[in-house]
């Protein structure tokens, strides 16, 4: 999933301060799972904003809505009525969701309420970890299913740096050394020979380095 975390309330207040009526629009998919922008978070944020404006003796009207997925037209459409009657929409979806909204509602103001962070998983309750960089050229097969492009702080493809100690990455005591995990996993799988394989310079053209990417499925274009 895509993870995100809500922006600090004071940043949000600055973003919406110029408007009288604001719709807070949640998204019921990824950002809901990571507790950043689902129905519950929309309600809490709306309540906090109301309290804050009241305390400052300012007025603001806040409406709430959450659609199933803000990155799909089909679901975005449901927001059109409320969007039309508000001055601005604060989207709690990921950056893709915000921009999907912008494409659909060319004249409406859509503001980001979360910081989109990474493609990851919920490793354990309340803890999310980054697992994939969407480099466009997956080589997990040779690395025993652990991605060094994403999880090694130096994107090393030919083995660990000299800073790896006791399974921990040199950059942070809370971060596992990806190469330690790779070696562990290959040991379990009996594929340690993979480590001797020379990995040539990565082709980054398929990644964001090659410019914004587009995926075309001819068979689905009508």
């Amino acid at each position: 999933m895509i993870t995100a975390s809500q922006k600090p309330i004071n940043e949000i207040i600055k973003l919406i301060a110029p408007y009288k009526k604001v719709l807070i629009l949640g998204c019921g998919t990824c950002v809901k799972t990571c507790f950043a922008g689902g129905e519950d978070e929309v309600a809490v944020l709306a309540s906090a904003l109301r309290l804050s404006f009241k305390k400052k003796a300012m007025t603001i009207e806040i409406e709430e809505q959450t659609v199933e997925r803000q990155c799909e037209n089909e679901f975005i459409q449901e927001a059109s009525v409320k969007m039309a009657r508000n001055d601005a929409t604060l989207s709690l979806a990921c950056g893709a969701g915000v921009q999907a909204m912008v494409k659909r509602f060319a004249k409406n103001i859509v503001l980001p309420g979360v910081n989109t962070t990474f493609i990851g998983i919920q490793e354990s309750q309340g803890i999310f970890t980054e697992e994939c960089s969407g480099c466009g050229n997956c080589e997990l097969g040779i690395f025993g299913g652990v991605c060094p492009v994403t999880r090694c702080a130096k994107k090393l493809l030919n083995g660990p740096c000299g800073g790896s100690q006791k399974g921990i990455c040199e950059i942070n005591p809370d971060t596992d050394c990806a190469w330690h995990l790779i070696i562990e996993r290959l040991t379990t799988l009996g594929q340690l020979d993979n480590l001797k394989t020379y990995i040539p310079p990565k082709n980054w053209d398929t990644s964001l380095s090659g410019g914004p990417r587009k995926l075309v499925r001819e068979d689905h274009i009508i």
Binding site: P160, S164, Q165, W179, I183, L195, K196
Partner: peptide, 13 residues
């Protein structure tokens, strides 16, 4: 550095 067993493989590489 760790993993120690791997250090020589890395040298060979």
């Amino acid at each position: 550095a760790d993993p120690f067993e791997y250090r020589v493989i890395r040298l060979a590489k």
